[in-house]
Design a binder for these strands. Structure first.
Length: 801
RNA sequence: GCCGAUGUGAUGGAAUUGGCAGACGUGAUGGACUCAAAAUCCAUUCCUGGCAACAGGGUGCGGGUUCAAGUCCCGCCAUCGGCACCA
């Protein structure tokens, strides 16, 4: 027997696959297709992380199995290459980010190839390639044309020390993640995408797709749909203050109103307000607070009562005070609420601080102690025409009353906010817009795309928080595409989420110059059949890309409503100490070293065997040896080969069962138990001391998706040809059944004996047999048999006393 | 606070979805091979009692349903992840 030289073998087959372009997906539209997708990585300077191979190998296994099942498989890879770390590295080392990106990609690609992943490298995409972001920019222009991209004054996070706008993720504990400097809110004009226009469709269409339940739940919560009503309150200023509430049934219990400190009506009332100084001071305080501080302040309710303007409860004509408080957010509903302290915990807290009346309108709790918020059990009281109704009935009745009397109407609301789409950064897609004094914002003509990034002296954001592009006169100054007057370009760039919102479409037709991908290619390949990625992308990437896809569907650019048919997710790989891997903890495992020591096949196998695919799992340097041992045993099995074709009779059942188990487990992401089944089969064959050629061949095919290099090598050595060109092995359900099965006999639920009986034996055969067993008979002596339970092929239970 | 998940040997994890708890792997212990080590192979390895056959207990805790519960129901506890004043 030759030695298992994994390094040599792996290089050999990787070269073979490259030379033969084995995994290239042809645009052969007559074959059944399968589109398997993994999230394309951000090519960081650190190279591949040990966590990357887990989802990649998983989908590689599925892709390899599907090819053997006769599908035309698209399994592509690319680079989500715009982003801050590259830009920061470029700033620090005075290298152009494009060069850094190129180097990183080369490194990543080499590492991915060393894992033997069956990607179609002819379809590689790169979000920083002008031929790619041409279409990212094109999509933005279409969004603008349909009114879904707009500019808005927005509060952003501003690091007072770095003088830079920070993403929310960069603000940790109220300070700048990098320098620890104070972060304040600063108002800037930002491009926004109107994802909220698609909120209901994003919610409804979840019913059409096969996502893990927890993913659907998270998206549903993020979209945050609620049903309620808008209610109009007249004010003593003679105008109308509209609130949104999910509990219109409690309208009789509204004893005051609260509006956000940023509410625009404060300006219209300013002549009448007697305590404007106090109001201004409160507004000032709220504006300077970061989100973090606002949350901190949540413990104690603060606010200011408006003097000079009061509101009138439409249902009973009572005059009630209006407050400003930062517990009411301008960005949700109407920025104003009716406060019902008896039935809302926040209003209750506020009422206690300001000593406001608390009127019970739903009976069932103890409002002397706390707010009663239960909608299911309460009965309406102190509510005029609503008295005696249930909460649900009252909601219906009051909504009808509001509509009839012109005091309000039913209304739905969403927590989902529009997408802040501007970044004051260099390394991103330039936003292809021009500002003209006469025409306003005008998109670049499509034939001028792509709008490339100009070379700049410095990639540093400017002192005032503008993009580095803003310092470049030659870039900024242009003419209006509409009227030809001098105009200025937008200098902000797009967020990293832009390029990743449609990359799966480009894979279908990656070099198309006329459109983002040809209709034929999209009709054939889309939707993605199976998309695996991290849970951390559930609310951002996954939602953003669904939004763009629906928009592209609406303008006729894609053929399907949803981009991904099935979405699964994997758990993170932790360090040996069960902590997240990080340089500072010193628990980082380098995949290159693992490959050098054990080989890529062992690494792949171990990452799949490490535990439940969906859960996090700690890396174990000793456990990986078990996988290496298993491969060694499979390799050494060539010495156990005996002549003769077919599976031997005594192994027939186990062979068929193993094929079934592995085939089914792969589909359900249960790679760990699939591997366990193959290990068990190998143990059986070793115990037997021999393996037939057919048995070995089947084992190699089953193992191939997991350990492609070694199995190809053995397959070739055995004279079977090229493994990945073979058909996946099949099983016969009838042959998965043993002739005889072992059943358990219990007396009063306690195991007494195990019996071998014919498969599917009838009750009237088994029960007498079980009763005759000496141990069972002994246990039943002197007792009356009350009940006998027989579960076919499983167990007998005698209940007696 | 809200939403979601998880809790099984020394350890990573299995358990046909209500039917033998601990598959498969790691580690450990003993043995074989070896001058020796590594590698490999064999055996044992949930706990308690017993030389043993065997008996009893056991899936975070407390109840319940059932002939039968890791699995279902009710109430707690702990850990992890996400959201966080969303009216």
């Amino acid at each position: 027997m030759s030695e298992y030289r994994f390094t040599e073998i792996e290089k050999k087959w990787q070269a073979y696959w490259e030379e033969h372009q084995t995994f290239h997906a042809e645009n052969d539209y007559t074959k059944p297709k399968f589109y398997a997708l993994v999230e394309f990585p951000y090519p960081s300077g650190q190279g591949l992380h040990i966590g990357h191979p887990r989802p990649y190998t998983a989908m590689d296994i599925v892709a390899r199995k599907r090819r053997m099942e006769g599908y035309n498989v698209l399994f592509p890879m690319g680079w989500d290459a715009f982003g801050l770390p590259t830009e920061n590295y470029a700033i620090k080392n005075h290298i152009h980010p494009a060069i850094v990106t190129e180097q990183n990609i080369a490194h990543f690609k080499e590492q991915l190839k060393a894992l033997g992943l069956s990607f179609d490298w002819q379809r590689e995409v790169n979000t920083t390639d002008p031929d790619y972001f041409h279409w990212t920019q094109w999509i933005f222009i279409q969004l603008f044309k349909k009114g879904l991209a707009y500019k808005k004054e927005m509060a952003v996070n501003w690091c007072t020390s770095c003088k830079v706008v920070l993403a929310n993720e960069e603000v940790v504990g109220g300070v700048c993640e990098r320098c620890g400097g104070e972060v304040v809110r600063k108002v800037k004009s930002q491009w926004m995408l109107k994802i909220t226009a698609y909120a209901q469709r994003l919610l409804d269409d979840l019913a059409q797709v096969n996502y893990l339940d927890k993913i659907k739940v998270t998206q549903t919560n993020w979209i945050g749909h609620s049903t309620g009503a808008e209610v109009d309150f007249r004010t003593t200023a003679g105008d109308v203050l509209t609130v949104y509430t999910t509990r219109p049934d409690t309208l009789f219990g509204a004893t005051y109103m609260v509006i956000s400190p940023e509410h625009p009506m404060l300006e219209t009332w300013k002549e009448r307000l007697e305590n404007m100084d106090e109001i201004r001071a409160y507004q000032e305080k709220a504006a300077h607070k970061s989100d973090f501080e606002r949350t901190e302040m949540a413990k104690d309710k603060t606010g200011v009562c408006l003097k000079g303007v009061r509101a009138v409860n439409p249902v009973n004509g009572k005059e009630i005070p209006i407050f400003i408080s930062d517990y009411v957010l301008m960005s949700y509903g109407t920025g104003a609420i009716m406060a019902v302290p008896a039935h809302d915990t926040r209003d209750y807290d506020f009422a206690k601080v300001f000593d406001l009346p608390i009127i019970e309108v739903v009976k069932g709790g103890d409002i002397a102690k706390e707010a009663f918020t239960d909608c299911a059990t309460g009965v309406m009281v102190n509510s005029g025409f609503l008295d005696g109704l249930s909460v649900e009935e009252a909601k219906v009745k009051i909504k009808a009353w509001l509509t009839e009397n012109g005091k309000g109407h039913e209304k739905d609301n969403y927590k989902l906010r529009d997408w802040v789409f501007s970044r004051q950064r260099y390394w991103g897609e330039p936003i292809p817009m021009v500002y003209c004094e006469k025409c306003g914002w005008v998109p670049l003509p499509e034939e001028e795309l792509p709008l490339r990034l100009p070379d700049v002296e410095s990639y540093m954001p400017t002192d005032n928080g503008e993009s580095p592009l803003s310092t470049l006169e030659s870039f900024i100054n242009t003419t209006c595409p509409h009227c030809g007057s001098p105009a200025k370009r937008e200098t902000d760039t797009m967020p990293q989420w832009a390029g990743s919102s449609w990359y799966f479409l480009r894979y279908c037709d990656p070099t198309n110059k006329e459109c983002l991908a040809s209709p034929e290619a999209l009709r054939y390949w889309m939707p993605v059949d199976w998309y695996n990625g991290g849970m951390e992308h559930t609310t951002l990437h996954l939602l953003y890309s669904r939004f763009w896809h629906k928009f592209l569907y609406d303008i006729g650019s894609v053929p399907c409503v949803e981009p991904y048919m099935r979405r699964t997710s994997h758990g993170m790989i932790l360090g040996e100490d069960n902590q997240k891997m990080s340089k500072s903890r010193g628990n980082v495992i380098n995949p290159d070293e693992v490959i050098a020591q054990y080989g890529a096949d062992t690494l792949r196998l171990y990452e799949m065997f490490i535990g439940d695919f969906e859960k996090t799992a700690p890396w174990s340097p000793s456990s990986i040896r078990g996988c290496k041992r298993f491969l060694d045993r499979v390799w050494a099995m060539q010495d156990l080969l005996v002549d003769g074709d077919g599976y031997r009779d005594e192994l027939m059942t186990e062979m068929h069962k193993t094929i079934r188990k592995v085939s089914q487990d792969i589909e359900q992401l249960k790679f760990n138990t699939a591997i366990a089944a193959m290990m068990a089969l190998v143990n059986t064959l070793y115990a037997k001391g021999s393996v037939s050629r057919s048995e070995y061949r089947t084992l190699l095919i089953l193992l191939n998706p997991f350990a492609p290099h070694m199995t190809e090598e053995l397959f070739e050595q055995l004279g079977y040809g090229i493994l990945n060109e073979q058909a996946w092995v099949t099983y016969d359900e009838a042959l998965c059944k043993e002739d005889e099965v072992e059943i358990v006999v219990q007396v009063n639920g306690k195991l007494k004996v195990k019996l071998m009986i014919p498969h599917d034996a009838a009750e009237d055969v088994v029960l007498p047999m079980a009763k005759e067993d000496p141990k069972v008979a002994e246990a039943l002596v002197g007792k009356t048999l009350r009940k006998q339970i027989y579960i076919q092929n499983k167990l007998v239970n005698f209940v007696a006393n």
